[in-house]
Nucleic acid binder design. Structure first.
Lengths: 211, 211
DNA sequence: GTACAATATGACTATATAGTCATATGACCG
DNA sequence: CGGTCATATGACTATATAGTCATATTGTAC
């Protein structure tokens, strides 16, 4: 984590550095991001940077932590007044808030997306900790409960579905960037509906032979 | 593309360079891959490298092209004796051959996976061309045909499903690397079955109210 | 206002890297 | 054998980058 010196900084300077870091990671990705460029952009001295952060990784971790917090805040409200036991409604809200976050903070969302695709397992574990595992467990339990209450088919493989949900939320957030399917707000909602429809009903014709 | 000089090389030397490039891209990814390291590893002179390839991008493109060819060859046989009109069987074969390719050539598969996640739209377009679009169209047509023949529900959103299929095949190939769900061959097949079951039947209980 | 601690600074070192180029080596042909 | 063309070579240039450190500046407590 950043050194205390960084948090003692006046807000404008702190924000300046943060914004520059966001710009840098957004434009170049983690691997190619350069501290030299960040200090040049912000006008702070090289030595100062190293008084705020350990190294690039430290800065990256901080940026992602802030993004994580923002994302959580962003979705919290939407999730709060939600039927706690409707899986599909929950999934839908997951997708929608992913998209809304992208709209509100495209660069942050893009950095988070890149992070999800990063090929550095240790770094990912350092940053996300067991959040992914916990979310997975949460969904598995929810699925099992809904099986019992008869809303979800008992044949559904809960761990696979839980994993699929996590993956699809990445899919939605990612594809939102550059795909025809998510062009306008309206189209994005339609695509989400279609996706959820498929997951809910399956693609097989209901009146096909042998059902 | 590589200069003719590269293709004129004796096979062993050509392979040596190719293998070293694979190692490099596998270990460091495109952004961090270094030509200096590749020439050091292979023992060829720096100047020679630049007689074979334009630059790193040129080498990368060549590696991915070879991987693409290998992948196509790999699946071609399996797809050949397949019911041409069974979408789900096709999707299953797509997943299975993805996994089989991963087993046979883990490093190549990993490089291909990284490429899919690469954040360089121009480079991606240069390499894949319109292959993705064509595959998408193919699936859309197949879906529409199966709607007409009554095997797929008419309510299914064909473009979304086609896109979903493409994405899921990446999902399967990627998760295969490090996930519990795909540990053993047997488990991998079970996971694929579960996935396809969900896509086929949907997760909603069939006897739920209002069906 | 003085002493002390925290912070800021940027020149400097060490290290990587991409890409070039003049020269050397080999291969093939007449 | 001699000449010409393709190929090989690695030292060299130019440029980036990470990270350090002695020194300067600022802030704060008394």
């Amino acid at each position: 984590m950043p050194h205390p010196t960084f948090f003692n900084l006046p807000a404008d300077k702190r924000n300046l550095i943060f914004e520059a870091a966001v710009e840098e990671f957004y434009e170049f990705g983690y691997a190619k991001a350069s501290i030299s460029r960040i200090v040049a952009k912000t006008g702070i001295a090289k030595g100062s940077f190293y008084q705020y952060f350990e190294d690039k990784k430290d800065l990256y971790k901080h940026v992602l932590e802030v993004i994580g917090r923002q994302k959580t805040e962003f979705s919290a409200a939407a999730f709060h007044d939600l039927e706690r036991n409707d899986l599909l409604q929950m999934v839908r809200e997951l997708f929608v808030s992913g998209i809304r976050f992208y709209r509100a903070h495209p660069k942050l969302a893009s950095i988070a997306g890149d992070f999800a695709k990063l090929r550095e397992p240790e770094l990912k574990r350092e940053i996300t900790g067991d959040a992914a595992a916990k979310s997975n467990e949460f969904f598995i339990r929810l699925i099992e409960r809904q099986k019992e209450s008869g809303r979800i088919a008992p044949d559904v493989d809960a761990p696979v579905l839980a994993d699929l949900i996590a993956f699809l939320s990445v899919y939605v957030a990612e594809h939102y960037a550059d795909q025809a399917l998510f062009g306008s707000e309206k189209q994005a909602m339609k695509t989400i509906d279609s996706l959820i429809w498929i997951v809910e009903n399956g693609i097989a014709a209901t009146n096909r032979p042998g059902r």
